[in-house]
Simulated scan of single mutants.
Amino acid sequence: MKKLAIIALMLLGGAAAASAAQITFAETPAQAFESALAKNQPILITFYADWCGWCKKLDTVTYRNDSVAALANEIVFVKVNAEKDTAMSHKYGVAGFPTVVMTKSDGTEIDRIYGYAGPKEFLTIIRDYQAGRNTLPSYLAQAESAPTPALYYLIADKYIGRKKFVDGEKYLNKILELDPNNEKGYSDSALSSLADMKTRAKEFDAAKAAYKKLMESYPQSGLVDNALFGIAAVNRRAEKYDDAIAGFKLFMSVYPQSELVPDAAAYIAICTEKKGDTATALQMYERYLIDFPKSEDTTWVKSQIQRIKNPPADQKGK
């Protein structure tokens, strides 16, 4: 009987702990702002999408942590489906999911977390933001008195994450001006970030130019392989499929041991299908499973094989 009582207490204790780790989210952004103003508290706006796996992990792991959940005593939490509430997503320049934006009670942004963060990392970042550490304003203030390539890179990253590409480019260029020989190790990263930013802005020629400059200016950089891959990827985004295929093949021949080789092989198949050669694309997908059986993309590749072999009834024979 005593043993059963102990077990019962343990179960009750576990239930209480689970209950304690539940965050009550405001039902709407308007409700969150109203509550935050009334309590004079900051807000954490979690932008998510229904299909986003990392968003689900943020919910089931980070937000179920006791220490993170305790933040709800001093911060108002709200979730926003960014693909449905596009106005809010546009207002805060959300570029990916999940994005957690911390604001003042009036909605003015303090800073944000891009992507998934585990409980410990999440809590550390939020505490820093509450104290005014590692925020965009704090970095800008530091740069006024002691500019460094590292600091400029952090500032550029903050702006790019907000889709403020003009400001981001300004600070990436400051890095190149301050350290043209890449002695501090940030100029190659600046060019890579510039290329990525230009790709997202669909300025494809500018993106390829940045990648090429990286390869030519810093041939010893550890980012040269990524730049070569990036040029092919930009051509794919620009729907220049022949150039993309040639670029991915070149990458695979120059860097056969790169961890990006499976991605290059998959993109070649994708581009081949985009060109209308479904039969060859199917062979490439099947070959992919033989060459890269341990790739994390095998499930997706199998789905492409099934899609090609079993098209919807209204597409058969087309």
Score class of each variant (00 low, 15 high):
residue 2 K to I: 08
residue 6 I to N: 09
residue 8 A to V: 10
residue 15 A to P: 04
residue 17 A to R: 13
residue 18 A to I: 07
residue 23 I to F: 14
residue 24 T to W: 13
residue 32 A to I: 03
residue 36 A to K: 13
residue 36 A to V: 06
residue 38 A to G: 04
residue 43 I to S: 04
residue 57 K to I: 03
residue 57 K to Q: 12
residue 63 Y to H: 07
residue 65 N to K: 11
residue 66 D to H: 03
residue 67 S to T: 15
residue 69 A to C: 12
residue 71 L to S: 01
residue 72 A to H: 11
residue 75 I to Q: 07
residue 76 V to Q: 13
residue 77 F to M: 02
residue 80 V to S: 15
residue 82 A to Y: 10
residue 92 Y to R: 15
residue 94 V to L: 01
residue 95 A to M: 11
residue 98 P to T: 04
residue 103 T to W: 00
residue 105 S to D: 15
residue 106 D to F: 05
residue 108 T to N: 09
residue 111 D to R: 01
residue 111 D to P: 05
residue 113 I to F: 11
residue 116 Y to L: 07
residue 117 A to Y: 13
residue 118 G to P: 14
residue 124 T to F: 00
residue 124 T to G: 07
residue 125 I to V: 14
residue 128 D to E: 14
residue 130 Q to S: 13
residue 136 L to F: 15
residue 138 S to T: 10
residue 138 S to E: 15
residue 150 A to V: 01
residue 151 L to H: 15
residue 151 L to K: 12
residue 152 Y to N: 02
residue 155 I to R: 07
residue 156 A to P: 08
residue 156 A to F: 06
residue 164 K to L: 13
residue 167 D to T: 00
residue 169 E to V: 03
residue 180 P to T: 11
residue 182 N to C: 11
residue 187 S to Q: 08
residue 188 D to R: 08
residue 190 A to S: 12
residue 190 A to I: 04
residue 192 S to N: 07
residue 195 A to V: 01
residue 202 K to G: 04
residue 211 Y to R: 05
residue 220 Q to T: 14
residue 224 V to E: 07
residue 231 I to D: 00
residue 232 A to H: 14
residue 233 A to H: 07
residue 234 V to H: 01
residue 248 F to L: 03
residue 248 F to R: 08
residue 251 F to R: 03
residue 257 Q to M: 01
residue 259 E to A: 02
residue 261 V to Q: 10
residue 263 D to K: 09
residue 272 T to K: 04
residue 280 T to M: 01
residue 282 L to Y: 14
residue 287 R to G: 08
residue 289 L to K: 10
residue 291 D to P: 02
residue 309 K to W: 00
residue 310 N to S: 06
residue 310 N to M: 01
residue 315 Q to T: 02
residue 316 K to L: 02
